[in-house]
Write a protein that binds this DNA or RNA. Structure first.
Lengths: 138, 138
DNA sequence: ATTTTTGCTTTCAAATTGATAGCAAAAATA
DNA sequence: TATTTTTGCTATCAATTTGAAAGCAAAAAT
């Protein structure tokens, strides 16, 4: 993967890795919906095409945000799981969700998100905990 | 110019507005460095080209994240200021910065960010307050 | 009066994204 | 066992977006 970083700015560096059109939606599906396979991720509302999904999964793997494994029961299917680095994107994902909910209603019909009344830090903690619990039971 | 939204997901909708390669870096310079003119924003470390900056400022204006004004002393120069919607991107910007600082060191030399020891919610509040104070004294 | 600056726009090339088809290996079904 | 379907991709090529350079009119500075 030959992608260059534009600068030493931590914001720009984060965006150089996950700031494309699809990466954070892939992470969203993995982190919030616990999706694990190519097919599951393909079937999002936004319909990412296979060539892009394939390229993005490789990039995310190269930056250690996800790992690719298999289960013994299925020799064909790849299982994609978030690493700790990937799980820690939860605060960014949640902030994107809250901002969209608060500020985009006038431009787009926004799906309601559950537990909006709860405190931000609690929501983030729950998302991370739930993913880790799923991992432990996998 | 009106870009379509991919879905009703609040995360996807936010990304449809600021999820391109440059918007959040423009917002970063406005919000953290209090940049206000085309020229100031042009001179970032990442060197955005005029055609892209022009297009992005128009898009951000159309979604009411920024407003374009002038000062009486200068008939030529446009002044770009963040609206409340734009200022409220502070949590996203700060989370991107923290994640990059914590997770990208092994791939890129990351500039150190000041006040990293302070609490997250305090950093966000300070950024928003400082911008609003600048606006009031403008 | 001339030069420089500003905030763009235009042009065109390069890179990225997207739609469709295809394909080999594995799994499911007959 | 043979055939069909599914899975996880890759290849191809068109469409869209991004990027580099130059240009330009109005305003400001000299």
């Amino acid at each position: 993967m030959k992608k260059e970083f534009r600068s030493g700015c931590p914001i720009a560096s984060t965006l150089d890795v996950v700031g494309d059109k699809w990466s954070l939606l892939i992470i969203r599906d993995m982190l919030l919906k616990h999706k694990k396979t190519f097919k599951e991720i393909s079937n999002s509302d936004e319909r990412i095409v296979p060539s892009i999904l394939s390229a993005r999964l490789k990039l995310l793997e190269s930056y250690k945000l996800i790992v690719k494994t298999k289960i013994p029961e299925n020799k064909k299917e790849n299982i994609y799981l978030l690493t700790e680095k990937g799980i820690r994107l939860a605060p960014i994902i949640i902030e994107l969700s809250l901002w969209g909910n608060d500020n985009m209603q006038e431009f787009n019909k926004i799906d309601s998100i559950p537990d909006l009344n709860l405190e931000k830090s609690y929501i983030i903690q729950s998302v991370e905990d739930n993913y880790n619990t799923m991992l432990r039971n996998f």
